[in-house]
Amino acid sequence: MSGERDDVSEAIAGELRLMDPNVRASPSLARQLLDPHFVEVGASGRRWTLEELLAELPVMDGTAKNGPRYEPSAMVGVLLAPGLVHLTYETTIGGTRARRSSLWRKQSAGANWQMYYHQATPVPRHGM
């Protein structure tokens, strides 16, 4: 059971690092946390590839050191299969909430956990 907890903890740590303004501002640091086949469907509905996200990430919300930051809550993870963790949680940034889901995978022993897929769904201001 501790292996499962460790895998989930490592995926959560990676997710939180991707919210760090220093990581968001550095395409090379962010690339280490993102799978080469990464895809995201953002809260706007836009589909992002790895290269598109890395190009835009330094100017996106949550990057400015003195600006608003992502505030995650209720983050939980489940080991779906060896080397595959699913995370779900909510974020708030600048008063805007989103429900989020990420798949993290570890391709081989000794490899780092990397985000393979991310989905963000906006929560209406009066939504539950």
Score class of each variant (00 low, 15 high):
Gly45His: 04
Arg31Ile: 08
Val39Arg: 06
Tyr70Gln: 14
Leu79Trp: 04
Ser9Lys: 13
Gly95Ala: 07
Ile12Gly: 07
Gly14Cys: 02
Val41Phe: 15
Leu80Ile: 09
Tyr89Trp: 15
Trp113Lys: 05
His118Trp: 05
Arg69Ile: 08
Pro72His: 08
Gln114Ala: 07
Thr91His: 00
Met1Trp: 13
Glu4Gln: 14
Ala98Gln: 12
Gln107Tyr: 00
Ser102Met: 04
Arg24Ile: 07
Leu87Trp: 05
Thr49Ala: 10
Leu50Cys: 07
Asn66Cys: 05
Val23Tyr: 10
Asn66Ala: 14
Glu51Tyr: 01
Trp113Val: 02
Arg17Thr: 00
Met115Ala: 10
Arg105Asp: 01
Arg5Gln: 15
Val41Gln: 14
Gly110Asn: 01
His126Met: 13
Glu56Lys: 13
Leu50Arg: 15
Glu10Met: 13
Tyr89Lys: 08
Gly14Val: 00
Ser9Ala: 14
Ser26Val: 05
Arg69Gln: 15
Arg97Pro: 02
His118Gly: 11
Leu50Ser: 05
Pro21Tyr: 08
Trp104Cys: 06
Gly42Arg: 09
Thr88Leu: 10
Val23Thr: 14
Thr121Glu: 00
Ala64Gln: 09
Ala11Phe: 06
His86Gly: 07
Ala109Val: 05
Ala11Leu: 00
Ala55His: 14
Arg31Asp: 15
Val23Leu: 09
Asp20Phe: 02
Gly42Asn: 09
Pro58Tyr: 00
Ser101Thr: 15
Tyr117His: 12
Asn112Pro: 11
Met19Ile: 01
Ser108Ala: 14
Glu40Ala: 13
His126Gly: 14
Leu87Ile: 03
Gly62Cys: 00
Phe38Asp: 03
Ala111Arg: 04
Ala13Tyr: 00
Thr96Ile: 15
His37Pro: 02
Asn22Leu: 11
Glu51Asp: 09
Ser26Asn: 12
Pro21Glu: 01
Arg47Lys: 10
Val85Met: 06
Gly14Thr: 03
Ala120Phe: 09
Thr96Asn: 15
Arg31Thr: 05
Lys106Phe: 02
Ser44Phe: 07
Ala120Tyr: 06
Gln32Lys: 14
Arg31Val: 01
Gly110Thr: 01
Asp6Tyr: 11
Val85Cys: 10
Arg105Leu: 08
Pro122Val: 06
Ala120Val: 04
Gly3Ser: 11
Asn66Ser: 13
Arg31Lys: 13
Pro58Leu: 08
